[in-house]
Design a protein around this nucleic acid. Structure first.
Lengths: 198, 198
DNA sequence: AATAATTAAATGATCATTTAAAAAATGATT
DNA sequence: AATCATTTTTTAAATGATCATTTAATTATT
């Protein structure tokens, strides 16, 4: 089974270690040694596998984006109607695998660091426009064009805001509750007697 | 006339410098020298006036919180009915003095740094519960009790999410548009046919 | 034996902070 | 106004600590 995979194993281990150590110490404060210590290794081996600390953080973020994308896809695959497809976006973001202080905290710190690193900003922009176009597509059959962009921005800001609050909570959060609340907001938006131009 | 002490002048100058330099270079990356250079001074004088870099960042955040509080008060003073009072919260957060990439960016970076500094976290908690109780108070006459907390969390997450998006935009944002959009969401929330699933 | 993985120790760079001294302001006394 | 002592403000340079990264050698795998 596992034949020539040490490289892949370490890759994964260090990414998990980076998530854990970053959550404990902060995106900027965390040191190579602390990350390595999570799995009983040394800082030098991170460079052996990743080349640099920046690259490790970059790969860690890419890892989160991949999981998010795959999770979203899973929910889309079982969606039956337009409203389900809209729910799928929130269900993915509020999936138990994601919706933890650990992940949200890494995410928020990544957000706040992105504008200062060309490398990270590119990742960030790609994800932003991915989510944006998904929202647009799912809202199209549900909300009349004049209100659509307003509703999209409301939903997207809300989504980001919820993650922000989870990142700051030390207690664990209940994903089911977050989903239910998102559904409340979606109902409001779809009942929509309000809007603006653009 | 106002015989301002040098100490107060420098205090203010360095706080403005911290905002500017932090926006340019990032909360963690920015150095004492870069901040001092904003006003043609040297790093040592920051320590003369503030004692440490941490303390300067702390005071800078306190400064933003003070302005926010005072602005909110101004809007409350001219509010005529419960809905106006609810608008006041958003109007304060979206006041032109605040609603700039520079301020929102400092704010978001502060948010993401707060969990790792006892000093900063205290500030953060104080502000969070201040905003929370304002929302509760203003929603009380407008939303039936069973839905109130849900609506509050939706509005608060939305508010945070909007600031997050401004922090990431490099182009300048139109405060009037943000207020209008907030009013759209408020109308939705008050038209409220929501709760669990219906 | 040859290659891959790992590490301890060295390197070098960056900074916040301290120190000691210089420069400006203050103000009291002519 | 001018002098000079005192205090406040400012800085250049020194200090010391922290780290990411590199190197060279060691250990494990194939």
């Amino acid at each position: 089974m596992t034949r020539k995979k040490i490289r892949d194993i370490r890759h994964e281990e260090f990414i998990v270690a980076a998530l854990e150590a970053t959550h404990k110490r902060g995106f900027h404060a965390v040191t190579m040694s602390e990350i390595a210590a999570e799995i009983g290794a040394t800082a030098a081996s991170i460079n052996y596998y990743f080349g640099s600390k920046d690259q490790l953080m970059f790969e860690t973020m890419r890892h989160l984006l991949r999981i998010l994308g795959a999770t979203h896809k899973q929910y889309l695959d079982v969606a039956l109607d337009p409203k389900d497809r809209l729910h799928a976006i929130f269900d993915a973001h509020f999936d138990p695998r994601f919706f933890t202080p650990q992940h949200c905290s890494f995410w928020v710190q990544f957000w706040s660091a992105a504008p200062y690193s060309a490398h990270l900003e590119r990742l960030h922009r790609i994800n932003q426009s991915r989510v944006k176009s998904h929202f647009r597509a799912e809202l199209a059959p549900l909300v009349p064009a004049p209100f659509r962009e307003t509703m999209r921005r409301i939903l997207q800001s809300y989504l980001d805001g919820v993650w922000l609050s989870v990142a700051q909570a030390d207690r664990d959060i209940d994903p089911r509750h977050a989903r239910q609340e998102a559904r409340s907001l979606i109902e409001l938006v779809l009942s929509g007697k309000v809007g603006g131009s653009n």
